[in-house]
Write a protein that binds this DNA or RNA. Structure first.
Lengths: 342, 342
DNA sequence: ATGAAAGCGCTAACAA
DNA sequence: TTGTTAGCGCTTTCAT
């Protein structure tokens, strides 16, 4: 069995022959690089169409070490936040003939190193690491190989790595204003996993938002969660115990809010008439989850675009510190928030 | 600027020199192909480790047209069913050093052809098309290029293409038995989009399940949906109108069931005390969605494994019809089903 | 504006 | 058991 049998009998040379040019010209036409007479280009295009020619990027990857593939490392496809981002990221990349290479990995584990290795093998042109907390040593191989890195909401950058921060502050403030208008004064918070810097940042954002609207922050109305529904649920349950219950609760993300809503459902407490809930992320399912989740939403499309922008910026100046971009957030009001109970 | 600068100064030849062997031997050690003396292999491994050598698959892709990448085309990352499968598929592939190349595409659109082209460009070793309904012409390019194809629940195969069918029948029967035990006699159904073959198959499965437990199928208790929450919600609303409401409803998927649950919430109808709901898919969020969704669950892990198995089977016999594998389903009971209201 | 040629890293066929 | 060698398709540099 000859190797030929595995292959498409189709390459730039075939096209070149049919068009009566050299394969270098075919390359130029396909990539729009260098000067080609319109007439020549047209002849080449015709040949491409006639042969149904499909370019093979492996050649260029091999020769020049770039793949037109971006890596995306995310911790948890079960949280709808991530698929939603993935969807938008892929859509953004496809526009420029790039692909996503996905790795779902708990970022605080040796798995991360393995995912990084996979990315390196495939010669990705950059990596988006959807994590703010991770063992920095894990991404060193990427930096060493001069692969641009973008982290999410880490709020710090370094040589070869940019960050796309999410400006929850703005959305949290909108939420606080919204709740205050509804008459809420005792607003609680269910945060992220204890000990994480991100969790602290978001808690701070919450405190700041309360302060800005002239409400008092009460530590007793605050609980930590785990960014997942389970944590939101048990946190909510523990917030129901005290005699002086909060009348509204803001959360660190939608999954946490879903858990809280579930706890309230189970405790037969009506939302929003007895308590209001605000999520964060703006996942599409928030629209369905009873009674519809008011949420601080990020624009996934903007986030995807900024990630790509950051990646390109790092590539353009791989020796320098990457940029720190910011994605805005907006409050989306749905059924889970309402006037405070008299 | 020399090309050298773009490249890792690292390849099998480098390793070979350090280990004092030929680069062919290095290849054999890495891939476990051909005979190599243990002692030699050890020397090579040591050199690999010392250099931090990372193999570059582009070489092989170029030479032999295989990439160790499988394509995955899915219509909708917003339905948690798909991310859940993706997660498992990726996990399965990584075990054998493969990668997923993702394309999210409405399968009944010209986009599908574009996704197929992307897969062809990247020389994927196979494609899983998560769709049962699509324009067959769109996948012809894959078949023409001898790329193994696996479809999902299309329940038919062809030359070069296998199918992984989901045996909803079993799960639906379990659901019917479960509901009957709870005293339900008037069981309704919210199906898929009208006109799709899959929708018909699932409706049939539902009818058959009722029949098998000795219950009457009532067309008036059946509605079509759209596989999404919106469809489930409006279908549910229209099922509330008739004087003789169903006491339980089975649905075509979890998203539909979520929509139904939302409609019931909005109509202030208690689940399960006034009406029971059964979903289908077993997405993790069903555990959170109040009051917890009883659902006909598929094993995502099994599905991923079967897809890979099917892909390999087709590859082994690309000239023949692909196999038709089946994934089982099981009822997972949660809070949305309960004894019929007296 | 176009062509010629080099060379990226790999695996498999073949030779030794 | 190991080595030698060919050649996959591409983009870029250099020459014309």
């Amino acid at each position: 069995m000859k190797a030929r049998q595995y292959q498409l009998a189709q390459n730039m040379k075939t096209v070149a022959q049919l068009a009566g040019v050299s394969h270098a010209t075919v390359s130029r036409v396909i990539n729009g690089t260098g000067l080609v007479l319109p007439k020549t280009a047209e002849r080449v295009q015709k040949a491409i169409k006639k042969l149904g020619f499909i370019p093979n990027p492996s050649g260029a990857t091999l020769r020049y070490g770039r793949s037109k593939v971006f890596g995306l490392i995310m911790p948890d496809l079960t949280n709808p936040f991530y698929p939603e981002f993935l969807l938008n990221f892929e859509r953004t990349l496809v526009e420029t003939d790039h692909e996503v290479m996905l790795a779902t990995t708990q970022v605080s584990s040796p798995e991360l190193a393995r995912s990084v290795r996979r990315m390196l093998m495939r010669r990705v042109d950059g990596v988006v690491l959807m994590a703010s907390e991770f063992d920095t040593r894990s991404i060193e191989p990427l930096l060493d190989h001069r692969v641009p890195v973008v982290t999410i909401d880490r709020r710090t950058t370094q040589k070869g790595a940019a960050d796309v921060a999410i400006d929850f502050e703005t959305g949290y403030l909108q939420a606080a204003i919204h709740l205050k208008k509804l008459g809420h004064k005792r607003i609680g918070f269910i945060g992220g996993r204890a000990g994480l810097v991100t969790s602290k940042i978001r808690l701070k954002a919450f405190q700041r938002a309360l302060e800005d609207v002239g409400l008092r922050y009460d530590e007793k109305l605050t609980r930590m969660g785990d960014y997942r529904a389970a944590g939101g649920k048990s946190a909510m349950q523990s917030l129901l115990e005290p005699a002086k219950r909060p009348t509204a609760i803001m959360t660190v993300n939608d999954l946490t809010a879903f858990g809280a809503l579930r706890a309230l459902h189970d405790a037969n407490i009506s939302v929003p008439s007895e308590i209001s809930i605000v999520g964060c992320d703006g996942v599409p399912l928030g629209d369905v989850f009873p009674p519809g989740l008011t949420s601080v939403a990020v624009s996934y499309e903007e986030m995807a675009r900024k990630c790509l922008e950051a990646l390109n910026a790092v590539k353009a100046n791989i020796e320098g510190k990457g940029p720190l971009l910011t994605v805005s957030s907006t409050l989306v009001v749905r059924g889970s928030t309402g006037p405070v109970k008299k």
